[in-house]
């Protein structure tokens, strides 16, 4: 119980300073404590001005992503004891503008998510009276993995291509596009291809693979992007060779 660990927190108070600074806090290092518990301890006991996002504490909501010792992590499932004796460096997610302390601006990500039409697109909606769109378990397993994303943005924080070119649409959005493309009920892959085959779409990805490594839900965005590239390239080759062919 007496074990303690030092957290080096990036603080940024835009009304006072032009660049982030670091401040150190000592918190108890209990066996069952994650980084988020440490942050809440600071907020409750040591410094109420600290700002950070969190909600569910169980790896579902995707809001507590931060950079822990240089690695993008969900702070609710990153244990303090793994970093003993410390100190642990905690910074906001990389590649996003910082609003305050550990909070980043995520409008860019939210806008990108909607551009790929993350819903089931039908050429013609079936009338309600005809019942639901049905799907077999095999058909569902085709896209299941890509539907596990919790929008925690760790993949964007890890992606070197996104850091260099913020116009890149990014790992989670492309994996989400693939999730709908592979859905047997969806007919929107052509519309999504028009958006994604732009340069900032999929071709900017050089398969560094960092997104897959940091993903807390094993979505494998890097794999999704490569699959999508292959599909998109073959589709565009087909439409190049057979320009009159319907797609």
């Amino acid at each position: 119980m007496d074990d303690r660990i030092t957290l080096r927190l990036a603080r940024y108070r835009p009304e006072e300073e032009a660049e982030p600074t670091f401040e150190e806090y000592e918190v108890p290092c209990r066996k069952d404590w994650v980084v988020l518990d440490g942050l809440n301890y600071i907020k409750d006991q040591l410094d109420g001005t600290l700002s950070f996002r969190w909600s569910c504490r169980m790896g579902i909501c995707g809001s507590c992503g931060m950079t822990v010792n240089g690695e993008p992590k969900l702070t609710c499932e990153t244990f303090l004891t793994d970093y003993a004796p410390g100190p642990v460096r905690i910074e906001p997610l990389q590649n996003f503008p910082v609003i305050r302390d550990l909070i980043v601006e995520m409008t860019d990500f939210m806008q990108k998510l909607t551009t790929i039409k993350p819903w089931i697109v039908r050429d013609e909606e079936r009338p309600l009276a005809e019942g639901e769109y049905r799907q077999t378990p095999d058909e569902m397993s085709e896209y299941m993995q890509y539907s596990m994303c919790i929008n925690c943005m760790l993949c964007y924080a890890a992606c070197p291509v996104y850091s260099l070119d913020p116009k890149f649409i990014g790992p989670a959005a492309i994996a989400l596009a693939q999730r709908y493309n592979l859905d047997s009920r969806d007919e929107g892959s052509g519309e999504r291809l028009d958006i994604l085959s732009q340069h900032e779409g999929i071709w900017a990805c050089t398969f560094v693979g960092e997104c897959t490594e940091v993903c807390p839900k094993d979505v494998d965005p890097a794999g999704a992007i490569q699959r999508y590239k292959l599909d998109a390239a073959l589709t565009s080759l087909k439409s190049f060779l057979l320009p009159w062919g319907a797609r």
Binding site: I195, S197, Q198, H199, W203, K229, A232, A233, S236, F240
Partner: peptide, 12 residues
Amino acid sequence: VKRTLTLEPLLW
């Protein structure tokens, strides 16, 4: 969306 002709898929 207007489809811009791009060589990127072919090069890939």
